[in-house]
């Protein structure tokens, strides 16, 4: 088991390094010169050259790559061009809010998917089954920027119940979380419902019934445990989708997280900040996937057996 974890960790590190190199190259290939963007319009060439020297982008590319990677290993992503502050500090400032939004959305969608999906699987002709299909269809057809805009219009502008954006305490979290949840819910709901339907047909469910277990225990322990495995897989795959949704929601709701920071960084061609954000996001993605993998092994003894 532990050698399995080590192998997976090593894999993860390699993936993140490759992503770091890729983003470095793509940035240098893409149009836009950070020095020109930073300098006043019609600045003299020597002013622009001065910015180049300050940013360190006058040095040979390989040297830049080397010092970027060496810094990244020590957790130093350099100075932001745009904010003139350490990239790490800017990220550490914004990341908790992003993770909070992602976590709240994920928990919310999991609760709805498990609750509604289980009820729909148990009672295929009930209002729950109908509601579950409706929510899945709604979420499927509404991208985050669209549902986000509608939510703002109704609950912030129209009803004035909730703030339309920014970050002032928990109430700022509600609308963005709902928008993100709506976007990741459909897959989770469908997968959970289908695997729950399959699980409820298994013989071990008949056994549980034959021994007089209560229906709630049968559904939410005996069937759900088995039905949760496909859901976990989906979450692993969906983490990228979730982060993407969170970033869009941050922009729509002017929510000060990594997504908003990334937008500013992109516009300023702020190489160090973009690189830092990419590495942190990629690491989060990889770590979450690793965690899901380990949880999978904890739930299913057959997988644990296979790995050792």
């Amino acid at each position: 088991m532990s050698s399995y974890v080590l192998r997976r960790l090593l894999q993860s590190v390699i993936i993140v390094v490759l992503i770091a190199i890729a983003v470095f190259i793509v940035l240098r290939l893409s149009a836009g010169d950070p020095a020109r963007i930073r300098a006043p319009v019609f600045a003299r060439p020597d002013v622009i050259e001065q910015y180049r020297r300050d940013f360190g982008i006058d040095r040979p590319l390989l040297e830049q790559l080397g010092s970027f990677l060496w810094g990244a290993i020590r957790g130093d992503f350099g100075q932001s061009f745009r904010f003139q502050a350490p990239v790490m500090q800017l990220i550490l400032d914004a990341l908790p809010r992003t993770l909070l939004l992602a976590a709240v959305s994920l928990v919310l969608s999991l609760v709805v998917a498990v609750g509604l999906g289980s009820l729909a699987a148990m009672k295929p002709r009930s209002i729950w089954a109908w509601l579950s299909s409706a929510l899945a269809a709604l979420g499927q057809s509404a991208p985050v920027f669209w549902s986000g805009a509608i939510l703002v219009l109704v609950f912030a502008v129209g009803l004035r119940w909730l703030p339309s954006g920014g970050f002032n305490g928990p109430s700022s979290l509600i609308l963005p979380a709902i928008a993100v949840t709506l976007s990741i819910l459909p897959t989770q709901l469908r997968v959970l419902r289908a695997s729950m339907e399959a699980s409820l047909k298994e013989e071990y469910i008949r056994t549980a019934r034959a021994f007089g277990l209560r229906q709630s225990r049968i559904t939410f322990v005996y069937a759900l445990k088995n039905a949760s495995l496909p859901l976990l897989t989906v979450i692993g795959v969906d983490i990228g989708y979730l982060l993407g949704g969170v970033i869009v929601a941050e922009v729509v709701f002017a929510y000060p997280g990594i997504g908003e920071l990334a937008l500013v960084a992109l516009n300023a061609r702020d190489y160090p900040l973009i690189q830092g954000i990419t590495i942190v996001t990629a690491s989060t993605f990889v770590v979450v996937n690793l965690l899901i993998d380990l949880v999978y092994g904890r739930i299913d003894p057959r997988i644990r057996l296979e790995r050792s």
Partner: peptide
Amino acid sequence: TAALNPLI
């Protein structure tokens, strides 16, 4: 094999 829950 089928009658016992594999995850409990």
